[in-house]
């Protein structure tokens, strides 16, 4: 009998610590599937940020370095420069990448570091209990914006995929969503594109993934998917904001 569906080899057989309904697990799965399909599992090193993704090493049977909160793009820079023939990827949340680590991600991107970053935008600091992140939507209630995010005092949600796309060093910048099977398939294609950019030495690649945090949003997993579709996507449009082709390289 032919297997039509199985656990990717690049995922361990271990129950995750993610809350039921959280799409961090979905992101893990599609990254693992692409690692399988590209046959790069033996030559890849992963660097998670600090957040709900910190246990990346439990789920990916690959070499992993644990970076300080927000600094993974700098760690990946040092690592990739030391081993240009290896595949180095970073996995960060929105507190990690879009708040404390903005400087590191912008300059890694601007230098055109040949690394791939997967960026989980769930509009809150999930791990620490759902506080406001720079990506929190206007009006969204969090544990530190109990009256809803107000632009006069907390500013506007930050659009990292668009921002990074303005930098010359960036080969690929896209925003995808994990809220429906169709979108998950699109997200997987973007993950593959990002890794291909790195394999082809095209420069920095980043995929922002709109993701759920049903626990801290205090909604059911099913409602959380609707929140992504109806509230996040209208503000964070999906799409490819930069894609370098061979021709415009250099």
């Amino acid at each position: 009998m032919n297997a039509v569906f199985k656990r990717p080899d690049a995922l361990t057989d271990r129950e995750t610590h993610f809350c039921p309904g959280c799409t961090h697990g979905t992101a893990h799965r599609i990254i693992a599937e692409v690692i399988d399909e590209m046959g790069i599992v033996d030559d890849i090193i992963g660097i998670p940020g600090v957040g709900c993704c910190v246990f990346l090493y439990h789920y990916f049977p690959i070499d992993v370095l644990e970076a300080p909160h927000g600094r993974a793009p700098a760690c990946a820079t040092g690592m990739k420069r030391a081993q240009p023939d290896k595949i180095v990827f970073v996995y960060q949340g929105d507190g990690d990448l879009a708040a404390i680590g903005t400087s590191e991600v912008i300059h890694a991107a601007n230098r055109g570091e040949n690394i791939s970053i997967f960026f989980i935008n769930n509009s809150v600091y999930g791990m620490t209990g759902g506080q406001m992140a720079p990506t929190t939507l206007l009006g969204q209630q969090t544990t530190t914006t109990p009256y809803g995010r107000e632009f006069r005092t907390e500013g506007y949600p930050i659009k990292m995929a668009e921002m990074l796309a303005t930098l010359e060093g960036v080969a690929y910048s896209a925003r995808v969503s994990l809220h429906s099977p169709k979108h998950v398939n699109q997200a997987k294609r973007a993950v593959r594109k990002a890794f291909e950019m790195q394999v082809n030495q095209m420069g920095f690649s980043m995929v922002e993934m709109l993701s759920t945090c049903n626990t801290n949003w205090r909604v059911s997993p099913r409602e959380a998917l609707k929140v992504v579709e109806n509230e996040m996507i209208p503000y964070f449009p999906l799409g490819v904001f930069k894609e370098r082709t061979g021709k415009d390289f250099l």
Binding site: I47, P68, R71, A74, M79
Partner: peptide, 12 residues
């Protein structure tokens, strides 16, 4: 901050 974290990546 970036310098020392780059050191960490290369040293790792």
């Amino acid at each position: 901050i970036a310098s020392i974290n780059m050191v960490m990546g290369a040293a790792a």
